[in-house]
Every structure is written in C-alpha cells, then in structure tokens.
Amino acid sequence: MNYLSDEELMNLIESVEHEDMIQAPPDLIGNVLEIVDNEITDNTDDKKDNANSSDKKNIRDESELSNQKTYEERVTEYRRYTFRVVLAMAASLAICILSQVTDIRQHLPDRQEAVTEYKTRQEVIEENKTIYQKVKEAGLFEISENMED
C-alpha cells in the first residue's frame, strides 16, 4: 500500500467531488480551531515562561557578576589568608620552643628522685612510734583520761 501518485490523487478528488461527497461532522471545524487555539495559547505560555526564566537568569548573572571580586581584591584576600596561616604556624612553633626552654630551666626530678622524695611505709611507722613515745613520756594520755571522767 503506497502513497497515491498525483494522478491517483486527482482522480480520487474528482470522483469524491462528483459522486461521493458526504457532509463533514458538524463540530469538525470547532474541534480543530479549539486544538489550534490551545496550542497557540500553550506556545505563548511557553514563550512567556522562557522569557521569565531568561530574565531571572539574567538577574542572577548580574548579581553573580556584582559578587565577583576584582583581581586586586582577590590578591589582597589571598595575602591575608597566607599571613594568617604563617602566623598560626609561627605561634605553634613558638609554643613548642618555649615549652622546651622552660623544661630546661625548671629542674624536673626524674623517677628515682621523685620516688626517693616520698617516705617509705616503714619510715612513717617509725616516725609515728617516736611521736607516740614522746606523747606518752609527757603524760598527755593521763590528762586526757582525767578530763573525760
């Protein structure tokens, strides 16, 4: 089934016009006009939407451009940032060095020294015994018993 040739088409038109013409449905034109009208409205709406979106884009672009900094401003900002980083590094180095220097100046005892600083258990017992003897010899226990009575 191929498309009609020009001759076949003209014969068909002629035969329909002369013998077999039928009235079209009454709402044919109305439906076509309605569809075309809707398409035109849709296209107009699409164009409006596109125009609105391009306007918004332009506004956004302009704001982006205004937000863009000049070369000099960006260089200055970079220098400030570099200075802050260097300063932070110098400060951390200074803290490390100072802590080392104070360690050297202040004598911190090593473990053996630290251990020998504390009294052993036996020494504490002996010391307590000595104090007890002294108190006993002085008669302080008897005085306290009399006071309780």
């Binding site: 068909l12 038109i13 329909v16 077999d20 013409m21 079209a24 044919l28 034109i29 439906n31 076509v32």
Partner: peptide
C-alpha cells in the same frame, strides 16, 4: 472540510476514524 472528510471516509470506511484523520489533516 466535506471533501477531506469524504476522502477519509472513502479510504478508511470508518466515520469516527475519518473524523479524527480530517481533524489531524487540518
């Protein structure tokens, strides 16, 4: 409209299909 609809009806033999095709044609 009558000519187009008549041609469609002659070729398809269906009233409603002819109506649709005539609409699509315009």
């Amino acid at each position: 409209q009558n000519l187009v609809f008549s041609i469609c009806l002659k070729m398809t033999g269906d009233y409603f299909v002819s109506e649709d095709i005539a609409q699509e044609t315009f």
